[in-house]
């Protein structure tokens, strides 16, 4: 089944948040190698994306640590195990091979084969927030864009940007010089974005190079996914028509379950039911740890996920190394574990 391009490893971890990262550690102690896939462009999951600067007070033994510090420390802790990361990729399919192993493919056509798959996907994939404008999905990819991949595509365009954060302001500043016309709309005359960007934007408005309105987009007008205008609504609820051929909404990211929903895991309210001995789903060889799983008494705490990673690893070892005896050891006393960790 596998060709030259297929990566072979022991365990595939879907999600590189704190629990996925710690799973690398627990699996590593048992000599199991890991590949991690994450839709974000860096490790850390929610800790890095949602609250990098927020303090966390309930990590055992660390009275206070920020989201990003926890991620950095976990990365340091697992460095000796050389995990392979596949960032900015989303797992699209999960297939069982005739030899009993599992194969995943990503939206970047990465194919990985492993003995076990660990879903540590938290609340799902981070995807751009979609404004609740009727029919917006019909315009996505043609006239509505949540990211700018190629700036050239917008040269000479009549562009409408919605939002007040750094992405909205950064792209306003970047696209203003190449657009024929650029309009920024935001629900208030104040911005979350850096003051420097806001000042630059206001300067462009004063120079008449771009427009800014306190307004929000209420409706899209066009045909076959091609936009020719929108209805804007101002602070006083007056509505007007605004001609545009591209809308770029920038409201940050939210979590959606994504393709995991199609993996046949008997989901319960978008969570993967697991047992509490192995944290295995109803499909043998597919495990789920951290916020994505559910079982009686489940608490969505990072510390719970760490525990789940340790028990899952024992079960994954038995799948990946059938016939081998699992030697339970402590890092405090085991010279072989210390050697793996690179501390001895």
């Amino acid at each position: 089944m596998s060709d030259d391009a297929t990566i072979e490893t022991d365990v595939i971890i879907i999600g590189a948040g704190p629990i996925g990262l710690f799973a690398v550690f627990e699996l590593g102690l048992l000599d199991l190698k890991c590949h991690l896939v994450d839709i974000l462009d860096r490790p850390g999951g929610q800790c890095a994306e949602l609250y990098p600067e927020k303090p966390i007070y309930d990590i055992p033994g660390i009275p206070i640590v920020t989201g990003q510090e926890l991620v950095d420390r976990l990365l340091e802790q697992i460095r000796a195990f050389h995990p392979h990361f596949h960032f900015s990729e989303m797992v699209q399919s999960l297939t069982k091979l005739p030899d009993g192993r599992w194969q995943i493919t990503t939206d970047a056509d990465t194919t990985i084969t492993a003995h076990a798959v660990v879903i540590a996907a938290g609340g799902g994939s981070f995807v751009p927030k979609r404004p609740p404008i009727p029919g917006i999905e019909n315009y996505e990819g043609k006239s509505v864009f949540y990211a700018v991949r190629k700036m050239e595509q917008f040269r000479g365009g009549n562009i409408l940007i919605a939002g007040g954060g750094d992405s909205a302001l950064d792209w306003t500043l970047n696209l203003a010089p190449i657009a024929k016309k650029l309009t920024l709309v935001h629900h208030r005359d104040g911005f979350r974005a850096s003051q420097h960007s806001v000042n630059q934007m206001r300067e462009l408005v004063n120079e008449g190079k771009i427009d800014f309105h306190v307004a929000s987009v209420k409706a899209l007008h066009g045909e076959d996914g091609v936009l020719d205008g929108v209805t804007l609504s101002g602070a006083d609820k007056t509505e007007w028509h605004h001609e545009t051929d591209a809308l770029l909404p920038f409201f940050g990211l939210t979590m959606k379950l994504g393709p995991i929903a199609n993996f046949g895991l008997n989901l319960h309210e978008n969570l993967v039911p697991v047992d509490t001995e192995k944290f295995e789903s109803t499909t043998p060889g597919i495990f789920a740890i951290g916020d994505i799983n559910t079982y009686p008494g489940k608490l969505k705490l990072i510390l719970s996920g760490f525990h789940e990673a340790a028990l899952m690893s024992q079960a994954a070892f038995r799948i990946a190394r059938p016939g081998e005896k699992l030697r339970f050891q402590y890092t405090t006393s085991s010279s072989s574990l210390q050697k793996k960790l690179g501390v001895n």
Binding site: K129, R130, P131, P132, G163, G164, G165, H186, H187, R188, G190, F191, R192, A193, S216, A235, P249, F251, G252
Partner: peptide, 15 residues
């Protein structure tokens, strides 16, 4: 909170 509401997709004056 005012800043974070900039990331809400349909913010209004009573958000």
């Amino acid at each position: 909170e005012t800043d974070m509401l900039d990331m809400a997709v349909a913010a209004e004056s009573n958000s």
